[in-house]
Amino acid sequence: MLVRATRPALNAGAVAAVRPILIPTASYATLREIEGRLKSIRNIEKITKTMKIVASTKLTRAQRAMTESRSYGQTSNTVFENAETKADTEDGAKKTLIVVCSSDKGLCGGIHSGLTKKTRRMMESIPNADLVVLGEKSKAQLSRSSGKHIKLSFAGVGKDVPTFADAQAIADQISLLPEDYGDIQILYNRFINATSYEATPIEAFSEEAIKNSPNFAAFEIDDEALSNLREYALANSLFWALAEGHACEQSARRNAMDNASKNAGDMISKFSILYNRTRQAVITGELVEIITGAAASEG
C-alpha cells in the first residue's frame, strides 16, 4: 500500500512546508487523511454555496418589503416630527422600554451580536430600562447579561418576510404590559448598503409625550384618539424595524456564506496541493526504496 509505505520523516517535511498551522501533529497526516479532509471541505463548500443562493433569492424579496415598510414608518414619524414630539423622560419617573428586533436564525455574521452590544451600551446609560426581545438569538445573549430586565420575548421572528399582522400583534402585547413607559426605543439594524448596517434606535412615544409636544395642537385631534394613534404608531415603527432588520439579516447571511464559500475554496486548493505533494513524495520514496534494493541485490 502506498499509504503504509509513506516514510514519516519525508511526510512530515512536506506537510510542515505547506501548512504548518493547520495540522499541529504534522507527522501523521497520511494521504488518506488529507483525502478525507478534502472531501469534507468540499461538502461544506456545497452547503455554504446553497445557503448563499437561498439567502440571495430571499434578499430581493426582503429588500422590497423593506422599502415598502419604510413608507409606513416614515409617514407615521412625520407626524411626530411636525409636532416636535419629545420623549418624556426628563422627570425620570417613568421607565424606558427597549425593544430589540433580532431574529431566530444564526449563520449571518455579527448582526445579532451588534444589536446586543448596542443594547448593553444603552442599558449603561439607562440602567433601569426594561427589555422586550424579538428573536431567539439576542434573547440568548441578553438573558445572560441582563435577564432581570427582560419583560417579554417573542420567538418565530424572521422565518419569512415580516407581516404587518406580526407587528400589530407584538404592539398589542407590548401595550398590554402593566408598566406605563415614558419612552419606547425600538432597536433594529439599519440597512446602509449591502455590506454595512448599523444598530439604530427608533423612538415610539407615550401618550403624554404626544400630548405635550409643542406643535401638536396644529393637528386638531381629540384626546381620545391619542391612544389609538400611539398604538398604531408603535405597530408602524415595529413593522419598519422588523422588515429592515430582516433585509439586513438576509444580506448579512449572503455575505457570510459568500465568505465561507471563498474560504472553503482557498482551503480546497491548499489541500489539493498538499495532497499532490504528499502523493509525489510517497512515490519518490518508493522509487528510492526500489532502486536501493535493486542496487543492493545486484552488488
Binding site: 435577564g147 417579554l152 420575548s153 417573542f154 420567538a155 418565530g156 407584538i170
Partner: peptide, 23 residues
C-alpha cells in the same frame, strides 16, 4: 400577508416563563 405565527413568553425576575402562541 395576514399570517402570524409568533410565539412569546413572559419573563419574571430573569426567568423565562412558558412559551405561548401570541395569537
Amino acid at each position: 400577508r395576514g399570517e402570524m405565527e409568533l410565539r412569546f413568553a413572559k419573563w419574571n425576575n430573569g426567568k423565562q416563563g412558558e412559551s405561548k402562541s401570541l395569537a
